[in-house]
Design a protein around this nucleic acid. Structure first.
Length: 766
DNA sequence: GGCTCTAAAGTTTTT
DNA sequence: CTTTAGAGCC
């Protein structure tokens, strides 16, 4: 490992490992590099084992990238044992192993936001509350913010957020919250917030479990610490309490998730929390030109209460930001398209190095139109992901039901899809009995007589037929892999017949999507099989899918494309050329956040993030009128434009003033200044390789593995000590024959008990 | 119980 | 403008 590639402050941050440390990493200051080297250093110099290191990131993508880079330095066989991933992914894994302690089955399912809202909606209805007042999204956000603060239903009182409910005229949130939790439990399910919340509860109620993980994780690293919430803070506090070896990396200027419960005070008060902690500041920006860094600095200077730091660049001076004004959103989009074409024509830039950033997804539409008519290939991140599509959710609901029949939301989705004559009336009856008896809907539906369900014989038969077929497919879970099960299920459920019977375009695309899903599952299964010699369970697959984000799926069809996404989605990324569009009041900053100073500060940080994505060029645009919610509104330019140092901002070809970067190079503004805004030649239409929306295909995200002295073996016997390339050391406790050859059960020291197929398992005999 | 038509409402940002 | 939800009809 060549630590000489680091600068002094980076080096210091990497090499200090005796106690807690806070690394304040300015934008583009090589934060990922520090994390990568630090983990490598811990492995190679400090001598920690991979599984003793927990590294938490904000996105799956970040985890994967860092892991890959570490793998390049220490080899994949070590890198893959690292406990690395998002908070949610890591702690859901932990909860699956420890689920017995918290009264949940290990096959619990994860409710996504849509499931959670549906459940809330059902509860509101059952409680006979006004559905207009108690909007599921509002209630869920109240519950979510309570959970982020670790406030359980019993503690949910005036001091803990309930007074706000009264102000909002939704006083019954507490009751809904209580019932919501009961129903989740009844369904053997948890929502996103529970993954953190329940882990905290587990640690509080079972100190011995906490201790186990405290002992295991000798070192904890956290990326993007500025975006952690209180529940995450508590988890880290608990886990690090024993060794106090925790390193958090972040940038208070890039905290943009307060709306989701992120608490910037976590990073601001870290030093008070750990008085013995060391502070490291990474202030040199290696990414951007001087103009870009100065522009970003001048903007963020308007925020109060920041951790003092001075981000600077030793790169080229570059060009000032260019501000462009348009009459309408349509003209704005065309201006961006023309700028892009001009950059391409002049060979200044390639498409893959350009990105258009906007505040809200809805802004992408006009841009898409413009790009299409100009023949610019593009791709969009965000919006509806593959797994959110109705048909895919329906298919996944069946899979969930197979894994966990108690899953209420999955049950409600499946029971009458495809239509089998079981309507709302029946479902409500089933639900009522289930709730009074405190059992799952599935159980009631499977035994209508035993539960005295007041339905006629025909309906009872339909219910039992349905549950029977689910049970029957579920029997296959033992010896079939996720792919086979899904295929069988699509057939058995009647989904396939239903789609193929109708010959409209919708059914056609639905079927294509299902095939796409099947393909994704096949790849996921094969990959895991190849790497671990063990077929992943359906439950594992489902958890993985539920935690996937759009940012995690990246299709590469070889066509170079300009990228479009929200500013939030761009966090952590970099491009040569960045367009930030829609810099208008009530859009950026958004209406909702425009009312409070904290809101404005968050929006300002958001723009800071946007500008600092750029390596070479940044364009800021706004329109004087914008079409929104079916109406054209007149808009005024964002207040943030005026906050950027005029010396860094060029308006329509005229630079406002020369900028003195403290010395020398007087010639810098004679070059690189922008020419006027002349209209570019007409659009090139048709014939080019344009595309509307990149089809997001499911992508297995299992880590890349490779062998290192591991191989498959012909035979083993019970009691044999083995070393598995992923799971580490273990003892064979059982050997049996199956259709796929011999199957062995191994008790691993650090990975629990696993079932492996002998012909695939890459192991060493000890 | 299922389908179709009409009306209303909605647009941050995401694990 | 688009999408979803509800009412009413078959």
């Amino acid at each position: 490992m060549s630590i000489s590639q680091l600068n002094e402050s980076q080096k210091a941050a990497v090499m200090y490992n005796e106690g807690p440390s806070l690394v304040i990493a300015g934008a583009g200051s090589g934060k990922t590099r520090v994390l990568t080297y630090k983990i490598t250093y811990l492995l190679e110099v400090v001598g920690l084992k991979p599984y003793q290191i927990m590294a938490l990131t904000f996105t799956n993508k970040a985890a994967r990238e860092i892991k890959e880079r570490i793998a390049q330095m220490v080899g994949p066989e070590k890198a893959q044992y690292l406990a690395m991933g998002t908070f949610h992914a890591q702690f859901s894994k932990l909860l699956r192993t420890e689920s017995a302690h918290i009264g949940l089955p290990s096959n619990f399912t994860v409710y996504d936001t849509a499931d959670a809202k549906n459940l809330i909606k059902a509860i509101v209805k059952e409680m006979q509350l006004d559905e207009k007042t108690y909007k599921p999204s509002v209630v869920l956000s109240r519950i979510s913010s309570a959970k982020n603060k670790m406030v359980m239903p019993q503690q949910y009182d005036d001091a803990n957020g309930r007074s706000l409910d009264f102000m909002m005229r939704i006083p019954k949130v507490k009751e809904i919250y209580t019932e919501y939790q009961r129903r989740l439990k009844q369904a053997g399910a948890m929502d996103f917030d529970d993954m953190l919340c329940l882990t905290n509860q587990l640690f509080i109620q079972h100190p011995e479990v906490l201790e186990k993980y405290q002992n295991r994780f000798q070192y904890i690293l956290v990326d993007e610490y500025q975006d952690t919430n209180y529940a995450q803070y508590l988890l880290l506090k608990a886990l690090a309490a024993k060794h106090r070896r925790i390193c958090v990396v972040g940038d208070d200027s890039q905290s943009i998730y307060a709306f989701r419960g992120a608490d910037i005070s976590n990073i601001l008060y870290f030093q008070k929390q750990y008085p013995e902690s060391k502070l490291f500041k990474l202030e040199q920006n290696y990414r951007s030109t001087k103009y870009l860094v100065e522009a970003a600095n001048s903007l963020i200077a308007h925020n109060k209460g920041r951790i003092p730091k001075k981000v600077f660049s030793e790169n080229e001076i570059g060009d000032p930001l260019l501000l462009l004004e348009a009459y309408s959103d349509i003209e704005e989009a065309n201006m961006v398209a023309m700028r892009i074409q001009s950059l391409l024509r002049n060979r200044q830039e390639q498409r893959s190095e350009m990105v258009v950033l906007y505040r809200i997804n809805a802004q992408s539409r006009v841009l898409e139109d413009a790009f299409r008519s100009h023949g610019i290939p593009y791709k969009i991140y965000g919006g509806q992901s593959f797994y959110q599509r109705k048909i895919i959710k329906d298919v996944l609901a069946y899979l969930r039901l197979l894994v966990n029949p108690a899953d209420e939301e999955a049950f409600k989705r499946c029971i009458n899809f495809p239509a089998r004559g079981i309507g709302d009336t029946t479902i409500n009856k089933v639900k009522e009995v289930a709730n009074t008896q405190q059992v799952s809907l599935f159980e009631v539906a499977a035994n209508p007589l035993a539960f005295n369900l007041s339905v006629n014989q025909g309906t009872a038969r339909k219910l039992v037929n349905f549950t029977d077929s689910i049970k029957q497919i579920a029997e296959g879970l033992q010896d079939k892999d996720a792919y086979q099960i899904t295929e069988e299920m699509v057939q058995f459920s009647g989904i396939r017949t239903m789609l193929q019977a109708t010959h409209d375009i919708e059914s056609e695309t639905d079927w294509q999507n299902i095939e796409e899903l099947l393909k994704g599952i096949r790849e996921y299964v094969d990959k895991r099989m190849e790497e671990e010699g063990v077929s992943p369970t359906l439950a594992e697959y489902l958890t993985e899918v539920s935690l996937l984000t759009d940012a995690d799926t990246d299709t590469d069809d070889g066509v170079e494309r300009v990228t479009m996404m929200t500013v939030h989605a761009a966090k952590g990324l970099e491009y040569n050329t960045v367009f930030v569009v829609g810099l208008e009041e009530d859009l950026f900053p958004s209406t909702r956040d425009g009312e409070t100073t904290e809101g404005i500060e968050e929006e300002r940080r958001l723009l800071y993030v946007a500008i600092t994505r750029a390596k070479k060029r940044c364009y800021l645009t706004y329109a004087k009128s914008r079409f929104r919610n079916g109406k054209t509104n007149y808009t005024s330019p964002s207040r943030f434009i005026a906050e950027i140092d005029t010396k860094c901002l060029s308006v329509r070809g005229k630079q406002a003033a020369a900028y003195d970067f403290t010395k020398k190079d007087e010639s810098f503004f004679t070059r690189g200044s922008y020419t006027g805004n002349r209209t570019l030649p007409g659009s090139i239409k048709g014939g080019l390789n344009t595309m509307t929306r990149v089809q997001v295909t499911p992508q297995p995200t299992a880590p890349v593995a490779s062998a290192g002295g591991f191989s498959t073996v012909a035979d083993v016997s019970v009691g044999q000590r083995i070393l598995h390339e992923r799971f580490g050391q273990g003892t064979v406790v059982h050997v049996e024959s199956s259709a796929d050859g011999k199957r062995i059960r191994v008790q691993f020291e650090h990975s629990g008990e696993r079932l492996l197929l002998l012909k695939f398992a890459k192991i060493k005999l000890l």
